[in-house]
Amino acid sequence: MGIQALPRQYRVHGRKMASVLAVFGVAVLGFLVGIWAAEDPVTHQVKVLVSLVTLLFFAAVAGTLPRTGTTVDRSGIQIRGPLRTRRLAWEEIQDITTRPLTSTSSVIPDTVVYADLTDGRRKLLIHLNDLHVTDFDDEIAILQTVCRELGGTDPSHPAPTP
């Protein structure tokens, strides 16, 4: 299964994203309660300013985090981060590789995926990991096949070193 499997999209949806935002929201709320409950000589204006900046930061994160992800189609790979979107054409991509992470946490993936570029750089493919993708090994095989079919795996360029 190769290019006929395209397009593919990797994002965190539903309950997982709602859970992340809820935990972050509770942390922000706890921070704000701590500021307003403190009896130190901080002026009312400083508390209001810190509260507004904190709420704006939370709103920015809550507004951008659900949009992050990786999209793979016939023209290349789009990596949409919280601040910017990167577009990689298949001609720029040498290979799709996985890298293990050393973590014992259940909220951090064991393996992440990179697009190895022909200029020696690597780009992390957001939300394409064993924590967020079911049938992870099959997805990687599909993406590696697509990469070979659409222009990757140029033997004249060495793979980036980890």
Rank of each mutant, 00 (worst) to 15 (best):
A38D: 11
D40W: 11
V42M: 14
V42P: 00
V42D: 06
Q45G: 08
K47G: 01
V48D: 10
V48A: 09
L49Q: 09
L49H: 04
V50C: 05
S51P: 07
V53A: 15
V53S: 11
T54E: 07
L56A: 14
F58I: 01
A59S: 09
A62W: 02
T64F: 11
L65N: 05
P66G: 04
P66M: 10
T68N: 02
T68P: 04
G69N: 07
T70K: 05
T71D: 11
D73M: 04
I77C: 13
I77K: 12
Q78C: 06
I79V: 15
I79Q: 02
R80W: 01
L83N: 03
L83T: 13
R84G: 02
T85D: 01
R87L: 04
R87C: 01
L88Q: 03
E92H: 08
E92Q: 15
Q94R: 14
D95W: 13
D95C: 05
I96C: 03
I96H: 02
T97N: 04
T98P: 00
P100L: 09
S103D: 04
S103P: 02
S103I: 06
S105E: 06
V107H: 11
I108T: 14
P109G: 10
P109E: 07
V112L: 09
V113N: 12
V113L: 10
V113F: 06
A115S: 11
A115Q: 08
D116F: 03
D119G: 06
R121H: 12
R121K: 15
R122P: 01
R122A: 10
L124G: 01
L124S: 06
L125A: 03
I126P: 01
D130S: 13
L131C: 04
H132R: 12
H132M: 07
T134G: 08
D135N: 14
D137N: 10
D137P: 04
D138M: 07
D138I: 09
D138E: 15
D138V: 14
E139T: 07
E139P: 01
A141S: 13
Q144F: 04
V146F: 07
C147E: 01
C147W: 00
R148E: 12
G151L: 12
T153F: 08
P158C: 11
P160T: 14
T161G: 13
T161K: 15
P162C: 06
